[in-house]
């Protein structure tokens, strides 16, 4: 299994980071969960280092929520072991619960309570003293942008604000591990961005395990992704490595103003170009889709070529596979195998 290490200095500075030999926040080994009639999660294993942000991705029903519920100690596993900060989630449930901030799917809240009142209630429930409660509630209200809304009744808040209340609740006792189940579901793009920024700002201080069924959302936030498909891990790696997994770096696309024959002849002289596909586009420009040899970045070659010949260039990009493609491909492979 592959891990991204957070910068070494960062971990040492953490107030909550305890000296642990392996530095693992979550260790899941061979986790299985069977409900009556079907298996939701079958034999998955993964680990998360302290300070990492890890995304759990999968389509609906892939087993994300079940996995997170077991991690938070709400549901027991049918098989396998789960350890959080070195404690077994079932046998040492209280120790685990003290260390996690969990926001379930759909973010359930008490609609009749006011924001500040609710956060105070949750902080006290999680064992904070009165002094700590006041201090921490003030802090998370600020952190989650809820200062103006602190006297509002939760039931009357917009979805975006309710989501922030859920996040503030998960953060209020400064947990070592944050478990967020679909924190951006149902939000508009601007709200999604602010939630994403908030999660990103937690890196290093907290370990975060966040789930989503939208890959592109996690691609930008997470150090590492675990892709679940039908209760099994289809892939687990950094977003970059997942890109590489697709085999070969992406095509380079260039729009150049020159004649087609000149372009074809020029591309033939470059050995790294395996295949060139030239088609006319608006104006005098031609769109050249260049497939490289494995692992070669053609952009600088193409740029230099155009510079030498004095050809105007109006676009030069290397196409990346979106993780969406990777996800579809991975899950399709899986289906073909079974």
């Amino acid at each position: 299994m592959f891990f991204i290490r957070p910068p070494a200095g960062l971990v040492a500075k953490l107030p909550l980071a305890r000296a642990m030999s392996d530095g693992l926040m979550i260790e899941v080994s061979n986790l299985t969960k069977r409900y009556a009639g079907h298996t939701a999660v079958s034999g998955i294993s993964f680990a998360v280092r302290r300070g990492e942000i890890v995304g759990l991705v999968g389509s609906n029903g892939a087993g994300k929520s079940t996995t997170l519920r077991i991690l938070s100690g709400y549901l027991p596993a049918s098989g396998g072991t789960v350890r959080v900060a070195g404690f077994d989630v079932f046998a040492q449930s209280m120790e685990v619960r003290r260390r996690i901030g969990y926001m379930p799917e759909n973010n359930p809240l008490h609609p009749e309570m006011r924001v500040r009142e609710y956060l105070k209630f949750r902080a006290r429930l999680k064992g904070l003293s009165w002094g700590q409660t006041r201090q921490r509630v003030d802090m998370v209200l600020q952190q989650c942008g809820l200062v103006e809304a602190q006297k509002s009744v939760i039931g009357q808040l917009s979805k975006g604000y309710r989501q922030r209340v859920g996040l503030a609740d998960a953060l209020v006792h400064e947990p070592e591990l944050l478990i967020l189940d679909e924190p951006t579901i149902g939000l508009d793009p601007r709200q999604i961005r602010s939630v994403r920024q908030l999660i990103k700002s937690l890196a290093g201080r907290h370990t975060v395990l966040v789930s989503s069924h939208i890959l592109s959302e996690l691609e930008m936030t997470c150090h590492r992704m675990v892709i679940l498909h039908e209760g099994r891990i289809a892939a687990a790696d950094t977003p970059d490595n997942l890109q590489a997994l697709m085999g070969g770096r992406g095509q380079v696309v260039a729009e150049i103003a020159a004649s087609q024959a000149e372009l074809q002849a020029a591309f033939d002289t470059i050995a790294e170009i395996r295949h060139a596909d030239i088609s006319p586009v608006a104006g005098d420009f031609f769109r050249c889709a260049l497939t490289p040899q494995d692992g070669v970045d053609l952009r600088s070659r193409v740029f230099n070529l155009a510079l030498q010949r004095g050809w105007p260039v109006r676009e030069l990009t290397r196409q990346r596979h979106t993780l969406e493609d990777i996800y579809v491909r991975l899950t399709r492979v899986e289906e073909e195998e079974t």
Binding site: R69, Y74, M94, R97, Y102, N106, L109
Partner: peptide
């Protein structure tokens, strides 16, 4: 029914 039972039982209460 509302799901708050899940947030309740994942805090350190018996």
């Amino acid at each position: 029914a509302s799901g708050t039972f899940e947030t309740l039982m994942t805090t350190p209460v018996t």
